[in-house]
């Protein structure tokens, strides 16, 4: 009991003192996950919009598959990316395994379906309202998809944040492809797992605080932006 209490105090101290070890880990975490979210958004938003607006065979099946992929188990993604990047794998020559790039790739695989599936839903809902008007104005399907992505931008921020939340909090995939190498590929979640198993509860707890705080702040921000946007733009 008292060790837990002491751990909390020490953890708070580490956060307040902005411990450099802590900062490095947090920075790497954010860099990896933000890069992954950026790439996954560039892929997922157009994919979601295309499935929402496009008329092609297999669209329903694709929607079901995409929704299913939202629940991809991170360790399995980690394993697949590991096989892809390992020395003997198809992309082995790039030498990316156990680098931050490998972690970015794994997170992109993990969250692109999330961003695509959520944005498909958002764009499809808007399309129901906009379809006749846009077709009347002569918008081609790709043009309509772009217009809808722009028009639903505030709602889409939720989809992107869901992806970021998942990326930053995920441990299985980055552990496997990053290897949790200190100072190179050690991020918040892998540190928490490691430090806990080593018994260094204060560092694990301090990272836990920060992780939760980051997730909360991001969601609060997204909420505020949406509220403001609805008031301003309807």
């Amino acid at each position: 009991m008292s060790t837990v209490g002491e751990s909390f105090v020490t953890a708070a101290g580490l956060v307040v003192a902005a411990d450099p070890r802590l900062l490095d880990i947090v920075c790497l975490s954010l860099t990896v996950s933000l890069s992954a979210v950026f790439i996954a958004s560039c892929l997922g938003l157009p994919i979601g919009a295309a499935i929402a607006v496009g008329r092609f065979p297999g669209r329903r099946t694709l929607t079901v598959v995409l929704n299913g992929l939202m629940g991809l188990p991170p360790v399995v993604v980690g394993l697949l990316v590991y096989l892809l990047l390992s020395r003997a794998g198809p992309l082995g020559a790039l030498g990316l395994l156990f680098t931050p790039s490998a972690m970015v790739i794994a997170q992109v695989v993990l969250i692109t379906p999330i961003i695509a599936a959520l944005s498909r839903q958002i764009v499809a809902d808007a399309w129901r309202d906009y379809e006749e008007q846009l077709r009347s104005l002569g918008a081609s399907t790709p043009r309509a998809a772009c217009t809808l992505l722009i028009d639903t931008r505030f709602s889409l921020s939720t989809a992107v944040l869901a992806g970021l939340g998942r990326a930053v909090a995920e441990v299985g995939a980055v552990m496997i492809v990053g290897g949790n190498i200190e100072g190179v590929t050690r991020v918040m979640t892998t540190s928490i797992a490691l430090e806990t198993s080593k018994g260094d509860l204060p560092l694990a707890l301090a990272l836990g605080f920060i992780l939760i705080a980051i997730v909360l702040i991001l969601n609060a921000l997204a909420h505020a932006v949406r509220e403001w946007a609805v008031r301003r733009h309807g």
Binding site: Y130, E132, L137, A139, R143, T147, I150, D151, H233
Partner: peptide, 18 residues
Amino acid sequence: VMLRRSVLDNLTYALALA
């Protein structure tokens, strides 16, 4: 249906499509 942009931009959008 109005697009989520200004009145003027709603018109210029239609003109762009045309």
